[in-house]
Every structure is written in C-alpha cells, then in structure tokens.
Design a protein around this nucleic acid. Structure first.
Lengths: 128, 128
DNA sequence: GGCCGATATGGACTTCACTTCATATCGAAA
DNA sequence: TTTCGATATGAAGTGAAGTCCATATCGGCC
C-alpha cells in the first residue's frame, strides 16, 4: 500500500541576487551597475562611443544614461570634446574617478554580506 | 574680479536603493519583494484575487507570478480551491509561511546594512 | 579649408512586460 | 440543479524603455 510522501518538499537550486543603485529625489533615472561599467570603460577608452560599443548598447542609450547620472548627482562625470583628429573624446572628471572607487568598495561590501545573508536565509528556510 | 568657483561641485540629495530576489538556474522569473507581498496578502485574505486587487495588479499577473515562484522554488506555496460558496480560495502552505519569515529576517538584515554602507559610501565620495 | 569621426539630439520603430478581455472549470449552498 | 465568484489560462491590446536611423555640430589635421 501507499505511504504518504514525506512532508519535506524537494527543493531546487535557488540563487540570491541583488542590485543597488542611486537615485535622485524625483526617482527619474538611476546610477546603477551599468552606469558604473560605462564610466569605467570611458575612463579606459577615453570615448563614450567606444564604451557603448564595448558594452554592446546603443550610443543613444549610453549618452542618455550618462546625462541622467550627471543630473542625479548634480555634477559632471565627464569632460566631453567634440571635433579634432579623432572626432572627439570623453574623459572622466576627478569626481567620476572618486565615484568609481567608492562604488567598488560598496560593491565589495555587499558581495561579502550577501553570501553570508543567503546562508542564513537558507538555513532559516530549512527550519534548523 | 572673478575668482574661480571652488572645485567642490554642488551635490544633490542622492539615495541608495537596493533590491534582492531569488531566481532559479534558468534565470527565468523571480521571487522578489512583490512576490513576498503577494504571499503575505494571500495569507491575510485567503484569496489570490483579493491579494491581487489589494496590490492593484491584474489577477493574471498575480497568478503568473505565483506560478513562477513555485516553479523556481520547486514546491507549492499555496493550496488552491476552486468552487464553493465563495467561488474558491487560496491558503499558504507551511513552506510559504516559513519562506515569509526567512525573508523578513533577510530584509531586515539588508536594511540595516544598507544604511551603514551608504554612509560609508558617501563619506568616501567626499574624500574624507 | 575640406575631411573624418565622436559628440549631440530628435523621431520612428521595435520589444516586452503587463493589462484587458474572453472563456472555461469547479463546487458549496440555496 | 442552478447560481455565483474565485481559480485557471490563452490571446489580444497597450505603454514604456530601448534600439535604430537621420542629421547636425565641432575642430585638429592633411
């Protein structure tokens, strides 16, 4: 005869994800992971277009994201130059560099915490 | 005569936001804040429809979200009943209740951390 | 002084998630 | 046994965000 199935349900592998971002008072637009990547690549390549290409996003979006980010923070993140031999360039302001450094530390802090928090979460789920 | 503006740019108020969620291996669908709210309301109201109404989302979406959540976790979060005097009902499984408890603790932990991390982030930005 | 390629920006088109709509099923109670 | 309201689910409609496209501007360099 049949016995009841054990009450412990089979569980699948689950993953805890997180996302952090900065926003302004209006909530319109954000400075997120992708913005930081964009800034990082601008610093590396010296060009918004090159950064956008590298990220495989449209120049239009990259430009708009940067615009939003500067609007949210209230100061310039890049010095843009039009014309010239290479057509133009974008370089990071000192503020952008500092922002990247601060973000890296923040990111690290979260990564560490998330792993720990997830373990705790899972163990609570299993009703230890 | 004009003096140069001070190099310290004016800053606007910025806010650090975060979002956490669970996902499966496929990355298709998620268990997020809104899912937890949905579960919480189902527990409170005893009905998926009532919960959806309360959250002002369509029943279609609520139903789909619940489906996704159960698929990700690999076990049932609600016991559904069709027909009867009230047309039907949904009640939480013990697993769902445990999930809500574990999530509340996780949420709390993050809230605490985020506040602290944000302060650190801002102070780094200001180059103390 | 014309050329080239990046910055700059508006507008059309596409994508995708969510809402709406439509329709079926179920079962206790009157 | 008819009714009523929630569960269940596909399909069409809608809106916001992003991609594409088109076009203008700028300025070292040959």
């Amino acid at each position: 005869m049949d016995m009841d199935k054990p009450p412990r349900p089979e569980r699948k592998d689950v993953f805890l994800n997180y996302k952090i971002w900065l926003s302004g008072l209006t909530g319109n637009g954000m400075v997120d992971d992708s913005t930081y990547m964009l800034l990082h690549l601008i610093g590396e390549k010296g060009s918004l277009k090159a950064a956008a290409d590298e990220m495989k996003i449209s120049y239009r979006k990259a430009w708009g994201d940067l615009e939003k980010a500067e609007e949210i923070l209230g100061y310039a993140l890049t010095q843009k130059h039009r014309g010239g031999k290479d057509g133009g360039s974008s370089i990071l302001t000192p503020e952008a560099t500092r922002l990247l450094e601060a973000y890296t530390a923040l990111q690290q802090r979260f990564d560490d915490n998330v792993e720990e928090a997830f373990k705790e979460f899972i163990s609570r789920l299993r009703q230890v």
